[in-house]
């Protein structure tokens, strides 16, 4: 572990710092906690699920296990894009424990790198956050760019039975 993070832990408990996976969606760069990420796979065949919101693209076969996939572009109200060689599915594990484990694939334009972000880079979510601002944990200011840190639990938790029924 890095000293930077440790100091951050002592100084500020609201943001713990740590490693983040950064990925591209449209022009922006986002980050999600690396501990939530299970694996990254290339784009695969998706079986569409009838009667689900449009951002639930369908289900895929992840080595014998069927998991739903979500198109993050659609989820965040962006124009859907053609899938390219760069398009990736980030498989994330949500849920509190083994019983409530909820594994979902998130389709993103491309995956960039794993970054260590300390508290000194962190800034709370912008005041002007729009409707989808609730999915944002905050921003990370790096040397030459800004990373939007997603609260992936909230993004995924949105596909709850309750909210799905409401969407129909």
């Amino acid at each position: 572990m890095d000293t930077v993070i440790e100091n951050a832990q002592l100084a500020q408990t609201s943001f713990e710092g740590g490693k983040f996976l950064s990925f591209q969606l449209s022009k922006e760069e986002y980050g999600i906690e690396i501990l939530k990420v299970r694996e990254i796979i290339g784009m695969v065949d998706v079986t569409s699920l009838p009667r689900t919101p449009d951002y639930v693209l369908g289900v895929i076969n992840l080595r014998g296990r069927i998991i739903p996939v979500v198109d993050l572009r659609r989820k965040f109200g962006m124009e859907p894009a053609e899938f390219t060689n760069e398009t990736c599915v980030i498989v994330v594990d949500c849920g509190s424990d083994a019983d409530n484990e909820f594994r979902v694939g998130c389709i993103v334009d491309s995956v960039s790198e794993v970054l260590t972000i300390g508290a000194e880079h962190f800034e709370g979510p912008p005041r002007c956050a729009n409707a989808s601002g609730e999915y944002i944990n905050g921003l990370a200011k790096l040397k030459d760019r800004v990373l939007i840190l997603l609260d992936i639990d909230k993004v995924i938790g949105d596909i709850d039975p309750a909210s799905l029924a409401a969407a129909q």
């Binding site: 699920l49 009838p50 009667r51 014998g64 739903p68 909820f102 596909i159 039975p161």
Partner: peptide, 14 residues
């Protein structure tokens, strides 16, 4: 048979 990875009542008819 495999679960769809979502709770059952979300996918009616399946």
């Amino acid at each position: 048979i495999k679960s769809l990875g979502m709770s059952r009542d979300r996918v009616v008819g399946l």
